[in-house]
C-alpha cells in the first residue's frame, strides 16, 4: 500500500496541469481523425520546401503529401502502407504502422514527456487564418530538442511547428499557409500518382544485443536491437528513445584503416560516425550531436563470445 501511495505521489510530481497536457492529446487525435487539406512551407537546414497535404481521417486513415518545388516528390499513405516517389525513380513501398506524414510533431505515446521536458501554453496567435494557441515543449537538458506548436483553437490541429535547439534557435519548421479543415479530400487526391512500385527491401530482424550503450544520456532507453537481413555477422542496429526523441546506433565490423570521426547535420537530423578497433559505430537521430557522441563513445561489447 505504501508503495502504491509513493508511486502515485511520484506520478503526480511529474504530472503537468491538464490545461497544458490536454492540448497535446487533442492534437494527436486531430491529426489522426480529422479530414483536412492545405499547403504548408517546410523549412529545414536553410532550405525551404512547399508542400501540399491531403488527409482523410478514419479507418484506414489515408493521406498524401506532395512536394511543390524541384524534383517531383510525393508520399501517400493508406494505414501503415506508405508509397514514396522521388524524381523519376520507381516508387518505393514501406510497411510502417503508426506513421504519419505531417512532420515535426512530438509523438506522445512514449509516456515520459514531462520527465525530460516541460510543457506550457503561450499566447493566442493567428496562423493560416485560424486562431491558434501556442504550446511550448522545452527539454530539461541539452540532450534533446524542444518544440513550439501552434494548435488550432477548436480542433487542436497543429497549424505550425518548430523544433528548437538549446539556444531557442529554429532548426526545422513547418507552417500552413492555406488550410481547409473538415472537408474530405477527393479519392484522386489521396491516391499515388503512379501504379508501378517496388517494395523497399530493407528488412531487419530482432536480435539479442551483444553491445550496449553503457552511459546513455538521461532517459534514453533501448527499445530494440535489430540486424539487417543482409547485414554482416556481428552487425547490430539499436534504437534508443526518451519517449519523444529517437536515436539509432549501428555497429558493424570494419576492415581497413580507420577514418577520422565524421559528423553531419541538417536541420534536426544529426549523424556521428566513429571507427576504431575493427568496428564502425554510427549514431543517427533527431537530437543534438552531443547526444550521439555520448552514445557512440560509451558503446561497449557485452560478450567476448560474439
Amino acid at each position: 500500500m505504501v508503495a502504491l501511495v509513493l508511486a502515485l505521489a511520484g506520478t503526480a510530481s511529474h504530472a503537468e496541469p491538464s490545461a497544458t497536457v490536454d492540448p497535446l492529446a487533442r492534437m494527436q487525435l486531430a491529426i489522426r481523425q480529422l479530414d483536412f487539406q492545405g499547403s504548408f512551407v517546410y523549412l529545414r537546414g536553410g532550405k525551404v520546401e512547399g508542400m501540399r497535404i491531403f488527409h482523410a481521417g478514419g479507418s484506414p486513415e489515408r493521406e498524401r503529401l506532395v512536394g511543390l518545388n524541384g524534383a517531383r516528390t510525393e508520399i501517400a499513405r493508406e494505414g501503415g502502407v506508405v508509397t514514396c516517389l522521388s524524381g523519376d525513380a520507381p516508387s518505393k513501398l514501406f510497411d510502417t504502422p503508426g506513421v504519419r506524414l505531417l512532420p515535426l510533431l512530438p509523438d506522445l505515446r512514449g509516456g515520459s514527456l514531462t520527465r525530460y521536458y516541460t510543457v506550457s501554453t503561450g499566447e493566442e496567435e493567428r496562423v493560416a487564418g485560424y486562431r491558434a494557441r501556442r504550446v511550448d515543449i522545452v527539454p530539461r537538458d541539452g540532450y534533446r530538442y524542444g518544440y513550439r506548436l501552434w494548435l488550432e483553437d477548436e480542433s487542436g490541429l497543429p497549424l505550425r511547428s518548430s523544433v528548437l535547439d538549446a539556444s531557442r534557435r529554429t532548426l526545422e519548421e513547418y507552417m500552413f499557409v492555406t488550410l481547409d479543415i473538415g472537408t474530405r479530400p477527393r479519392d484522386s487526391d489521396l491516391t499515388p500518382s503512379t501504379n508501378a512500385s517496388v517494395a523497399e527491401a530493407v528488412d531487419e530482424t530482432r536480435v539479442q544485443p551483444h553491445w550496449q550503450v553503457s552511459d546513455p544520456p538521461p532517459g534514453f532507453v533501448l527499445t530494440g536491437a535489430h540486424r539487417a537481413a543482409q547485414g554482416e555477422e556481428g552487425s547490430e542496429h539499436h534504437v534508443y528513445t526518451d519517449g519523444l526523441a529517437s536515436v539509432s546506433v549501428y555497429v558493424e565490423p570494419h576492415a581497413g584503416a580507420n577514418v577520422a570521426d565524421r559528423g553531419f547535420a541538417r536541420g534536426m537530423l544529426n549523424i556521428f560516425a566513429h571507427e576504431a578497433g575493427g568496428w564502425r559505430i554510427a549514431a543517427i537521430g533527431d537530437v543534438p550531436r552531443t547526444t550521439l557522441e555520448r552514445m557512440v563513445g560509451s558503446m561497449r561489447l557485452l560478450t567476448a563470445a560474439h
Binding site: 512532420p103 530493407v202 534536426m268 533527431d286
Partner: peptide
Amino acid sequence: RHYQAVGGNGQSGFV
C-alpha cells in the same frame, strides 16, 4: 533504416 525503425516515433517522419 533509422526512419523505418522509429516509424511514427520519428518526429519528422517520412518527409
